[in-house]
Simulated scan of single mutants.
Amino acid sequence: MIILSALFERDDPAAPLRHRVQTVLSVGSGAAVGAEWIGDVLIAVSELVQNVGQHTGGGGELTLSATADGLLIEVADSMIAAPRLRQPDHRQVGGRGLLLIDSISLGWGTRHHEHGKTVWALMPAPALVGSGH
C-alpha cells in the first residue's frame, strides 16, 4: 500500500520532503512508531534522494509503501547506472550513504525499467526494530 509519493527536482531542498515523510509516518503510524525508527527512515530517504541529485543531474520520485515486511522506500530516476557500495575514502566527505543504508535496512537494491532505474531500501517494520535487528 503506497503511503506517500512525491516528485522532487535536483535542487529542491531536502527539508520539506523529510518533513512530509516524518509527518506521514508519525500521523499514519500512531504511537507505536518510535523516534529512532523514524530517524532511520529519514536517513535512508535523505541518502537515496541526495544520490539522485549528486549522480544523475536530475530529479526523481520518492515512494513509500507499507509491505508485510516493513516500509519500502523507492527512489526512481532517469539514469541507468546503478549505485554500488564502495569502501569509504577517509580523505573524502561523502561516499558512505549506501553503507549506512545497508547497515540500517533489511536490504536494498536496484530495479531497472525503460525510463531509468529505481533504487529501493526495505526498512524493518517498527515492531521488528526492538527485536535485535
Score class of each variant (00 low, 15 high):
20 R>C: 01
57 G>H: 00
72 L>G: 00
96 R>P: 01
1 M>T: 11
123 M>K: 06
132 G>M: 01
29 S>D: 02
35 A>F: 05
10 R>Q: 10
79 M>R: 15
48 L>E: 10
92 Q>P: 08
59 G>V: 05
21 V>S: 06
131 S>V: 13
91 R>G: 07
95 G>V: 02
17 L>S: 09
105 S>Y: 08
35 A>M: 04
83 P>T: 03
14 A>M: 15
77 D>P: 05
22 Q>N: 10
34 G>K: 00
106 L>R: 13
36 E>H: 06
14 A>L: 15
54 Q>F: 13
95 G>N: 08
59 G>C: 05
59 G>P: 01
117 K>D: 09
73 I>T: 06
34 G>V: 04
103 S>Q: 13
75 V>W: 00
101 I>F: 05
36 E>C: 01
15 A>L: 13
88 P>K: 06
116 G>Q: 06
49 V>N: 05
109 G>L: 08
68 A>V: 13
8 F>Y: 07
24 V>K: 00
49 V>R: 12
124 P>R: 02
36 E>L: 04
127 A>V: 12
109 G>C: 09
19 H>R: 14
97 G>I: 12
106 L>C: 11
119 V>S: 03
79 M>T: 14
132 G>F: 01
10 R>H: 05
5 S>L: 13
45 V>I: 02
61 E>F: 03
48 L>F: 14
101 I>R: 01
125 A>M: 04
75 V>G: 09
97 G>W: 10
107 G>D: 14
71 L>K: 06
48 L>Y: 07
18 R>C: 09
48 L>T: 03
35 A>I: 06
119 V>E: 03
53 G>L: 09
77 D>H: 06
18 R>Y: 12
131 S>F: 02
133 H>C: 12
2 I>S: 14
130 G>A: 12
115 H>V: 14
18 R>P: 02
79 M>L: 11
49 V>S: 09
70 G>D: 02
22 Q>A: 10
104 I>A: 09
62 L>H: 07
47 E>S: 03
128 L>F: 11
20 R>Y: 08
41 V>F: 04
7 L>R: 12
60 G>Y: 01
77 D>L: 00
32 A>K: 14
46 S>R: 10
12 D>M: 08
101 I>S: 04
56 T>C: 03
20 R>D: 04
125 A>I: 06
35 A>C: 13
4 L>N: 05
86 R>M: 01
3 I>W: 06
42 L>K: 00
10 R>V: 14
96 R>K: 01
101 I>V: 15
114 E>Q: 12
101 I>T: 08
